[in-house]
């Protein structure tokens, strides 16, 4: 596969970097069954540029998929960039004649994405106190962006219905998840106009630089239209605080800073209760996802030891949910 990708990039190099430009240091970074990520350098007249190729290896079914196409992802990156949100800028959206299939190329931004390091490594001590406020400001920017066509709109009750169906079909009987579903269905936040959401804005999808803080927001594939508090609540889910449950925003900051940063950058005032609602919905979603990863082992689809062990993470979402309910959610 490496050869095939290299040849396609070599053919594309003059388009990207001018006559005589070459491809160097192609390296596969990660990839699931359907998506590949490659790092490479473009070496040409402008010197050396570090780039990232994202490429879909399997077929894409827009009806069934939760994620957006790479073409829409490219449009999202451009739209977010246009309102000043930090992203890895789009360099090229693959055309049919490029031979890469469904793919796009962005610049490679340096920094750290590992949540545990961001919350605890002394290298980030200087920027850490400002991250929550910065995240609020970035979300206000994203939420003000003009959405590309074709995004799905999802509100709290629709999201709950979708995950409750998955939970019911799993056959699991977990009282705390059951209570959380019923409670959240009974107390949805008042409706409000949908805005463009990142959809997976959490510690782990942020490229953090030890000097400038958040340097880029990554992984736009779950973007959709919805309640701004969905994005604000998702980064507060305890499962991405990496042991620092005392710092509710991503394990690095406070709710107040997140919400102040949001308003200071032009976002609406959003009550903390609405953020906590979506945080709880986020824990519930993650709990159901953990159950499904176990289910994929139990039914023989996956054999890795990782899958059943993720099933033992359902209880972390349950203890968080019952505590949020005790706290007055």
């Amino acid at each position: 596969m490496q050869g095939e990708v290299f040849e396609a990039l070599k053919g594309l190099a003059p388009t990207l970097g001018g006559e005589g430009a070459e491809i160097a240091d192609l390296q596969r970074l990660s990839g699931g069954a359907s998506m590949e990520t490659w790092a490479f350098a473009l070496v040409g007249g402008r010197g050396r540029e570090e780039l990232i190729l994202r490429r879909r290896s399997g077929p894409f079914d827009p009806e069934a998929a939760r994620s957006v196409s790479l073409e829409v992802e490219a449009a999202l990156i451009t739209a977010a960039s246009a309102v000043g949100a930090p992203v890895a800028p789009l360099v090229h959206l693959a055309r049919p004649q490029d031979g890469l299939g469904e793919a796009h190329i962005t610049r490679r931004i340096s920094g750290e994405t590992l949540g545990r390091k961001i919350v605890s490594d002394p290298r980030f001590d200087a920027v850490r106190p400002g991250l929550a406020r910065q995240c609020g400001a970035i979300l206000a920017q994203i939420h003000s962006a003009t959405p590309p066509a074709g995004l799905k709109t999802v509100d709290a009750l629709e999201e709950l219905a979708r995950y409750e169906e998955v939970y019911r079909n799993s056959g699991a009987e977990r009282p705390i998840l059951e209570l959380a579903f019923q409670h959240l269905k009974k107390h949805p936040p008042p409706p409000r106009p949908a805005v463009l959401l990142h959809g997976d804005f959490r510690n782990g999808n942020l490229m953090v630089d030890p000097e400038q803080g958040v340097a880029a927001v990554l992984d736009w594939e779950l973007s959709h239209m919805g309640d701004p508090a969905e994005d604000l609540g998702w980064i507060c889910v305890n499962s991405w605080r990496f042991g620092r449950s005392d710092r509710p925003v991503g394990g690095f900051g406070e709710y107040r800073d997140l919400l102040d940063g949001y308003v200071a950058a032009g976002g609406e005032e959003i009550p903390l209760s609405r953020v906590l609602y979506w945080q709880a919905l986020g824990s519930l979603k993650w709990g159901v996802m953990c159950l499904m990863m176990y289910a994929s082992y139990a039914n023989g689809t996956e054999v890795s030891v990782e899958r059943p062990m993720i099933g033992r993470r359902v209880s972390e979402t349950e203890i968080d949910l019952v505590t949020l309910l005790e706290n007055g959610l």
Binding site: N238, R312, S315, I319, D320, T323, E326, N327
Partner: peptide, 12 residues
């Protein structure tokens, strides 16, 4: 049993 080192959501 599952994750004795997990730091849960703090109580109010």
């Amino acid at each position: 049993i599952d994750q004795p080192n997990y730091a849960p959501e703090p109580g109010r």
